[in-house]
Amino acid sequence: MIKVEGLYHDYVGKGEYAVSDVSFTIERGEIFGFLGPNGAGKSTVQNIMTGLLDLQKGSVMYDDLSVRDLTPSFFNRVGVSFEQPNVYLRLTGLENLEHFAGLFSVPTLDPMVLLERMGLRDEARKRAGEYSKGMRQRLTLARALINQPDILFLDEPTGGLDPSAAASMRDLILEQKERGATVFLTTHNMYLAEELCDRVAFLESGRIVAMDSPSNLKLKHGQHAVSVEYADHDGLASRTFELDNEGKQAFTDFIAQVEPLTIHSQEATLEQIFIKLTGRGLTQ
């Protein structure tokens, strides 16, 4: 279990916290989404959790091990994919993975198999400097997976990817969960979070404003209603029914009277909930 408690971080040392009083726990095998717009403090939290930034205040515990006491060997269990693809541009994709594979003292995956899985087999022997941003992003993720980590940190893993590659990436992340890995997913992509995450936390201006499973958040903050589109004399019309006792009866009666064209539940998206809670969108 990963336990983060009372985390604060001040980059300039003037009491201007980029992250304030952030607390959460992640259970083993869970995909935990950290959602927020750019600058909300998502990457700061990930960097503190991976030891890339100093732990100034609060605690980050991996079971009984504090982030302050991490040794290099701990990282045999960890994979980190960064928001900005950071690979050796003068090395080929294959060489990048072979190099990092050589640093681990646990069994690692075959770099070529991993590159094939990422759709980079044909470019395996091209220098990473010749890759597009999306290809470098996939290479960065491949590097994070090379040691089959127990704990996987993914910072905007679908950034710069086309829809097909993004879908493939989603499948890959789900495979990691099936394998038993714990995934900390930092993103502002609500669809990705909604599809993948067991729980999400909304981060705004360095503070967590809501945290729950996506379905619970929708139940809690969404509208319990259905909308029916139907054809009438004037063309297309629609009507919405609240799903309380009266509304349910009215909905049933109405459906029996008209020819419905579409019926949609009116549950809120994570984006709508985020706007409701913070007054701003996830992509702003």
């Binding site: 991976t50 030891g51 890339l52 290099p72 060997s73 701990f74 990282f75 045999n76 960890v78 980190v80 960064f82 900005q84 950071n86 690979v87 050796y88 541009l89 990092f100 640093l103 681990f104 003292s105 960065t140 590097r143």
Partner: peptide, 17 residues
């Protein structure tokens, strides 16, 4: 060069040491 390419961050979260 490694510093500018950002790969030292990746090295830092590996068991390299």
């Amino acid at each position: 060069g490694e510093r500018q390419e950002g790969v030292l961050e990746a090295y830092r979260v590996s068991p390299g040491g």
